[in-house]
Design a protein around this nucleic acid. Structure first.
Lengths: 207, 207
DNA sequence: GTCTATATTTAGATAGAC
DNA sequence: GTCTATCTAAATATAGAC
């Protein structure tokens, strides 16, 4: 991971352009469907320059995804809101995570890693650690804190409940968005999903 | 859909071989990474024969996925078990759906459709109708029946709860499998996931 | 209907000038 | 470091013999 960080830290304008182009194209069309020509064109550099920065297509794809993973790790704007009433605090937590999960960048990254995970196992692992594991840890901490405050039932393991919190968000709306059937969901649809999930979680986990 | 059914119904040995090969390769490697040469080789036919049955790669891919969708529709071994005690009946329902969702074929199909959904929108729509919509309908009926029997709370809409039932199964285990980090989960892991989901659902929805 | 052999395009990757 | 021009391999698709 430190090696990846080093790679990411090594910045230069051309490198930035290339990685941005890679993000746009790979996340939209998938790995195999994107040509190095198209990447060079969108990045505004020649193919030779592209190969000067990255040994090949694999490495460029890997660097792009690694950067997205690091970006997720940096998303530490953790909802650690415990002052509002439980229902409201939980609603905010759910709202934050649903909007995060359905944001175009996150959906695209998830879709791409899922599609190429079999051929890039290291990448799938890195994504898993930087995304789900990290997010579930945060939610688990939030739950544990609420248990300590006596607002959530004490008789369950936060590490079991956290995945359920997040999983509940992957309902019909999420699948539609992931499949590309819905480009941008209406505010009402998102709010309805948040409300439904919050209600169910409160009934299942509140004291 | 009737047109698709006709296409699928038109059977012949070579056609079967080709579709089987397409299933194996496309679901494993994705659309773009599979060559018509590889397909012809695995199917045991020449490339010309392949093009005699399908106008091109797109059509072959579409036919393969359409067939999988039809297969999901045929999976009507619906759990309509309401005689056992509620906890046990629900456990069986959850168990059936989790094992279905993490079965290799279903995971591969989901992954592939997700990856290519942007470039094959009709396909994504067909998958959505044949898979999620159909499954959620069945679960919704099960819930409604339990409400009528007075074993589940009457104060929620089955169409809202059904996606939550299924969503709860998409926890950490599911993501690991989808990403290819776990090939075959242990029986204990599956059972633990089923138990956890059942407990939560009972607390949230049982009277 | 099915095959072998091939046409044509495009992919990833590089050589050499500046 | 960066570009233009090019190499080589592999892709989709097809022609023509049987």
């Amino acid at each position: 991971m430190s090696a990846q960080a080093d790679i990411i830290a090594t910045e230069s304008p051309k490198r930035r352009q290339i990685l941005d182009a890679a993000g746009q194209l790979f996340l939209k069309d998938g790995y195999a469907a994107v040509s190095m020509d198209a990447l060079a064109r969108l990045a505004g550099v020649s193919k030779a320059t592209l190969y000067a920065y990255f040994p090949g297509k694999d490495a460029l794809f890997g660097a792009m995804v690694a950067e997205r993973c690091a970006g997720m790790l940096a998303q530490d704007r953790l909802i650690s809101d415990h002052d509002a009433p439980l229902a409201e605090a939980m609603r905010r937590l759910i709202d934050f995570w649903l909007r995060f999960l359905i944001s175009p960048d996150v959906v695209s990254t998830y879709r791409t890693v899922l599609a190429e995970g079999a051929r890039f196992p290291d990448l799938a692992r890195a994504f898993f650690e930087a995304g789900p594991v990290m997010g579930l840890g945060w939610v688990g901490e939030w739950i544990a804190e609420e248990q300590r405050r006596g607002r959530l039932r004490p008789d369950f393991d936060p590490r079991v409940a956290a995945p359920q919190f997040i999983a509940l968000l992957r309902g019909e709306l999420y699948i539609k968005i992931a499949l590309g059937l819905v480009a941008e969901p209406s505010e009402e649809a998102v709010a309805a999903e948040v409300d439904a999930a919050t209600d169910t979680l409160l009934r299942a986990f509140a004291v």
